[in-house]
Design a protein around this nucleic acid. Structure first.
Lengths: 183, 183
DNA sequence: CGCAATTTTCAGTAATTGCTGAAAATTCGA
DNA sequence: TCGAATTTTCAGCAATTACTGAAAATTGCG
């Protein structure tokens, strides 16, 4: 590993441990992500000085997150791994997985809590707070779904517009007679 | 704690441990968030059956994340804590803190890696990947800054539009002849 | 001030999570 | 089908992280 790669890998190790993912897994991912060609488990174990079994477990987790793809080289029985090099694709995958693992369960917990008849004033207030949270998460979730469907160029253009979209919105609002005065 | 609150708290404990934050801290936050009134450390320790010192550490961390606010009740020396009940505000705070703690350091690591002269073909490719990541993160970061500044109603309206914004963009692009956004 | 109430710190221990090597399972070519 | 190559599993140990109680520090009232 060159110093360049080493520092990238180290950083993702640290970051990984701040998220649920552990240091080892973060480093394995980082290595695959910047690698010029697919890597097999032994190469990874060697580069990072991890045991073969540790690498095996890490790869399993990365596959569960759909962050790496398994492939084979002709005439070689070993399994090789590569990561999509397109950062947008990575971001989308991460967003989808987090949604599935964290957002959906949270929404369903909230929904069920909101069904309950509150038994006290305290509960009533607790439910109000939960309702607020549920609304926000649901809105963001729906929005994300929508945005997910746009093609990348449009999305990029939209993001680069930043808050100028607001102007557009106000303008159109007026035209259509749906305007609400600005902030 | 009523069953309603108990299940909310338990869920956030679980979720907390999937993020960097630990179970205890997640539970303390959840309890404060749904509570009808500010709570002091002893009340929290009692409700969750944690030691007083554990609660103290948890509150310190929540304050570092700016997720809870310290306040006093007249005629009571103890410190009371409350959380903003507005989910939007919570989201903004979380986003800002994550940015400061995770995004900024990552961007600066990437920037410095991109300054290095690649010493090999491998490095050149690694840098390409890093460049892609850097671009995306920077773009999202800028976008987020912008969006952060909008008032909540506008933002809500925009989100509810979802991908219909795209239509608007195309339409306006034609009218104004501003197909590509200039920085 | 002085002192009781309250919060914080921290060393020690408990609990959890991470990692390894050895063994078992699987895979695939011959 | 056999067997070498390869991957996976998992019990046991290591490292890290979480939690506690006791003690120290701080706070603010009288």
């Amino acid at each position: 590993m060159t110093p360049l790669v080493r520092s990238f890998v180290a950083h993702f190790g640290e970051m990984g441990s701040r998220w649920g993912i552990n240091r080892t897994v973060g480093q394995i991912y980082a290595l695959i992500y910047v690698s010029a060609r697919p890597l097999n488990a032994d190469e990874i174990a060697e580069a990072l000085a991890f045991s073969r079994s540790n690498v095996s477990m890490g790869l399993k987790e990365l596959q569960a997150w759909r962050l790496v793809r398994l492939l084979h080289q002709p005439g070689d029985r070993r399994e090789y791994f590569e990561a999509p090099s397109d950062a947008w694709e990575v971001f989308r995958t991460l967003a989808e997985e987090r949604r599935r693992r964290e957002i959906e369960p949270t929404l369903s917990m909230l929904r069920s809590a909101l069904m309950d008849k509150p038994t006290s004033e305290e509960d009533r207030i607790a439910q109000d707070r939960m309702r607020g949270m549920h609304e926000l998460i649901e809105m963001m979730s729906t929005w994300f779904d929508d945005v997910q469907k746009m093609d990348r160029d449009t999305l990029t253009r939209l993001m680069r517009m930043g808050s100028r979209v607001q102007k557009l919105l106000e303008f159109t609002g007026k035209v259509k007679g749906v305007g609400k005065a600005s902030k």
